[in-house]
Design a protein around this nucleic acid. Sequence first.
DNA 1: TCTTCTGCTTGATCTAAATCAAGCTGATTT
DNA 2: AAATCAGCTTGATTTAGATCAAGCAGAAGA
Lengths: 194, 194
Amino acid sequence: MYELLRAYLNKITSSTVSDEEFQFFEAAYSEKKVKKKQFLLHEGSICRYMAFIAKGAMRQYTIDDKGVEHIARFGIEEWWMSDRESFTSLTPSRYNIEAIEDCDLLVATNEKLILLREQSPLFVKMGVILDEKSYIASQKRLDVTISYTAEEKVIYMMENHPQFMQRFPQSMLASYLGLTPETLSRVRKQLLQK
Amino acid sequence: MYELLRAYLNKITSSTVSDEEFQFFEAAYSEKKVKKKQFLLHEGSICRYMAFIAKGAMRQYTIDDKGVEHIARFGIEEWWMSDRESFTSLTPSRYNIEAIEDCDLLVATNEKLILLREQSPLFVKMGVILDEKSYIASQKRLDVTISYTAEEKVIYMMENHPQFMQRFPQSMLASYLGLTPETLSRVRKQLLQK
DNA sequence: TCTTCTGCTTGATCTAAATCAAGCTGATTT
DNA sequence: AAATCAGCTTGATTTAGATCAAGCAGAAGA
């Protein structure tokens, strides 16, 4: 499991982590399994973990006043799941993080990461790269959400995240795109006929 | 002008920057004025500057295939303007950054910031805090965009960014919220009558 | 001062997507 | 094997907000 993290680290930082440096990662992260329909984080509690998905699929979502779920993000292999705000500032989270499939995770607490940040320059580098990536991704998603029609949204999803289309139920995909399940179903049908 | 940056730095990092350390900032940043309707960045060119707004107001936007403008963000005093992606990876930007009022900026190039990052731990700390803030803000904006009605969006804007409501034209505020100017106008009227 | 813009408002109409409502199919339970 | 259930599809209807179109007021320029 740690080998997956190691390969990921090398890939994302375009470097090769030494055995010595990677030992700090092994000390910081521990293995955790979360079964389907179980939660890594519940709304109202503090997010204790920054989790690397070695295997499985998860979603992060809020529930609004009207009881409607809004999916903030999906995660599959090689993605990170956490509520950064809650995790670093130790405030109660408004998110839920739920396993959609049985998951194998590598998790670290905030204290461990503070230490790791001092021990490993590569960890710091990875952090900067990930922050940037996620910022750019959320800008792009905003753009899609604001300016695309239902059909364009679905096409965007199929082209950019085909893995998601296969692994998450339609109702969740719809919520992620800001559509109703009915609309998503109709749009897909239309697209298949083309 | 540098004093504004200094005060901002102290505030955001909850620290007091020493004279010695702040000298590195003075070396990295230079003053730049951009007049109303002029551009700090044009679509297709590389974003050379990370700019701190000492005075004025700006907007960052894209133009889509249909010629419609989409506002990614607004900036006023104490905000940063840049296309992070273009700035760090030296790739052509898809954004325009335009002054809405005459602006006084403090700008730094990427090379200067790489140096500053080595010289000033406080600069690094600020970077981490800003990344986190902007990530959280864009998550929240996404949530608002996906799940709020036109009226709720306007209320959100009035409560959370009243400064924007006063300084930017309605047409731009509408674009920022993903509404048409007509709808924004109608919603405002309705809200005022309450 | 007059006139041309530019931005905002208001009204009428239209439409994309939501909502409401059934029915279908395959999985899970008993 | 029957029964319950969850997820998806399909159809009918409604609606929020877009689009189209006209008019108005203050700013900017001649």
